[in-house]
Amino acid sequence: MFIIIVGGGKVGQYLAATLSQKKHSIVLVDSNEAKAQRIAEELDNVLVVTGDGCDPLTLENAQVEKADVLVAVTGDDEDNLIISQLAKECFKVNRTFARVNNPRNQNTFDVLGIDAISATTIISTMIEEETSVGDLTTLLSLKRGNLSIFELKLTSDSPVTGKKVMDLKLPADCILATIIREDRSIFPRGGTVLYAGDSIIVLSRPENQKEIKKLFIV
């Protein structure tokens, strides 16, 4: 894939280095000439363009019209927004990602339809998920589609232990995907009975987390 990275800070450089190793062709854009020069010397397989990424001409120099993906990771949220909007609306780049430095701007990016990633938010959500719900772990959160995969460990005290799957009162947007019992996975049917020690893999909306915990554990 052809990927343009705008912003040659730590994040931009690391992305350029790892993605170029995975055989993607990478163009990195940074407005600081000395920095751009240094990056060009350090990273062999990365083409570096010097210029302001918010300037459509710079993006054209980076051959934005051919890009499959554009990533805006400068230290300024306003720049990341404008770069993503230019790429998306003017140059029809299929996928764009913006870095959100201040988590308070996340909602702005969401409202304006720009995919945005806030490291601070991700880390704090991870910590929250690890600490707040003891026996329920979030295995994966898919932001696109607003979907989470949870794992729950059943004990003999669980209200569902000994029950059949068809008798569970699952929330509307929720699927009991798999039961892991002694290293074997069971794909549940209505008549499958749940036992203490089972690990339950549930596919659901992130906001159902509390309800699911209540149903299976407390």
């Binding site: 300024d76 404008i82 702005t108 409202v111």
Partner: peptide, 16 residues
């Protein structure tokens, strides 16, 4: 004095 911050501020005011 920044074009980008003006654009972002305006979009926040208008769309949010």
């Amino acid at each position: 004095s920044g074009d980008n911050s003006n654009i972002m501020t305006s979009q926040v005011a208008k769309k949010v």
